[in-house]
Design a binder for these strands. Structure first.
Lengths: 261, 261
DNA sequence: CGTGTTCTATTTGTCATACATAACTACATT
DNA sequence: AATGTAGTTATGTATGACAAATAGAACACG
């Protein structure tokens, strides 16, 4: 377990509060840590997902762990409940808490995904993300073409225009994300919408990896146009194919970059 | 808020503990409630997901709510943290806890899915589940055909044989579930595997809905055989198509039954 | 010697209470 | 009117005590 530098007690009066407001490079993930308990979740979560605490490994007793992290047992336990809800740990009386096998993790959870990408994701994880996109997004585009409302289409169109008008990579990334979120929403299937965390992470990783070379970040605009048109005309198969090409192209790009790193 | 009948204090000495061990009809979901806190999660979770507590609605203050549910504030809070992790609620100081808009729910969470199906799911939700299966499973079958290990194939084959040998609907259901779980595992993509909760819920719903008439529950065995063969021969497109037909057939069946109810 | 049983130590689970902190309200001050 | 300031209220955190479960030791017994 990490010693984890002192935080609470040695805090003299009330200087700059450790509001750990991470802005994140291209990705969304403002999640400012307001709670102590949230801090516990983040710290332990990262440790576990990054493999610094291996599955099967038992955590120290709550009392000790709380002391080391400089929080009360209350705050620690509340944090551990959250981690348990994400499938990362499991705790029983007498035995203590253990890191669960990766099979049981909620890999689709936004936090878990974010933790995995906190330190440069492995090439093989990038590959898995891409595979998910290839499955999710064309299907979503097809469903959206069938069931989208006019308002939903308008939102997607707005995102498209924001992409077209983007001057910086950040602006582009934000609009791009909004486009893909819009498509998922337009499926009107909330199960599908919940997969946004995956798409978000995949896109975010893409931006991080390709940021180095891509001054021509706008190259995928025509792909988006084709999807938009298909959605407008309510042509499911056309939308599926257009999205398919977009993602396939994205795949070849990102894997090229991932290999370099 | 529900008055929720007294549970803790009026318990005389230590009679039969309320170990609420639900066996569930065809579905898996043993989740015996061992913790008081788990009870809180289940009770509130069901209330929220079933819409008895509408989004935006504020929950009573922790002190009151804890009293009404006959648990301490500690236990209540730990339960609420879990619900917050599932995206169902959100709580801030002074304001109190509120039910979040459905957009933010983790619809893919196993518990959330189970709660939605606790009381007979609506036809439109069944439709959404089926759509997810149609997207996930063929893609998974294709990926599995490419990357499955021999051991994984053996596991799927074992499930197939268990299906063939099944005498009761329960045995069949269990083996069927194992088959589909095996396919997801054989993709060797943990993001894919996490989607098992969806497949599980969809299949479970199918069994519940079709249990009434289906004395011929074995009719889908040939479909499974075709998938198995394709996996054996490592033929992605064949596997995809076979799985596709299986799910499509399942769709027509289940929606026929759903309409009846 | 092996096997089943009881006991005990340890750890999580729960409770109760007190106080800290944030956010909203209303009032006061300039 | 704008701004600051104090009070109110619910969540957030800390602490200490006890209940309950259970792994593992100690033990009795075949």
């Amino acid at each position: 377990m990490p010693p984890s530098q002192p935080k609470r007690k040695p805090e003299p009066p009330s200087n700059v509060r450790p509001l750990t407001k991470r802005v994140a490079n291209g990705r969304v993930r403002p999640i400012a840590i307001r709670n102590l308990q949230g801090q516990v979740v983040q710290e332990l979560g990262r440790l576990i997902v990054n493999g610094e605490l291996e599955p099967g490994e038992g955590l120290p007793r709550e009392e000790l762990l709380a002391e080391r992290m400089n929080v009360s047992r209350t705050a620690l336990r509340e944090g551990m409940k959250v981690l348990a809800a994400k499938g990362l740990i499991e705790s029983r009386q007498k035995t203590g808490a253990r890191v669960r096998d990766t099979i049981h993790w909620n890999h689709l959870d936004a936090d878990v995904l974010a933790w995995r990408c906190a330190s440069m994701p492995t090439e093989d994880f990038v590959e898995k993300l891409v595979e998910m996109r290839e499955i999710i997004e064309p299907a979503a585009a097809a469903a959206a073409a069938r069931r989208r409302s006019d308002e939903q289409l308008a939102q997607i169109e707005a995102a498209y225009h924001a992409m077209a008008a983007a001057k910086t990579l950040d602006q582009w990334a934000e609009a791009d994300l909004a486009f893909h979120e819009g498509v998922l929403h337009a499926t009107n299937n909330e199960l599908m919408i919940s997969l946004f965390s995956v798409v978000e992470t995949a896109l975010g990783t893409y931006f991080v990896l390709s940021a180095q070379t891509a001054s021509d970040f706008r190259y995928s605009l025509p792909y988006h146009k084709k999807v938009l048109d298909a959605l407008h005309r309510r042509q499911p198969e056309v939308a599926r194919e257009a999205m398919n090409k977009m993602v396939a192209d994205s795949r070849s790009n990102i894997l090229r970059h991932a290999k370099k790193a």
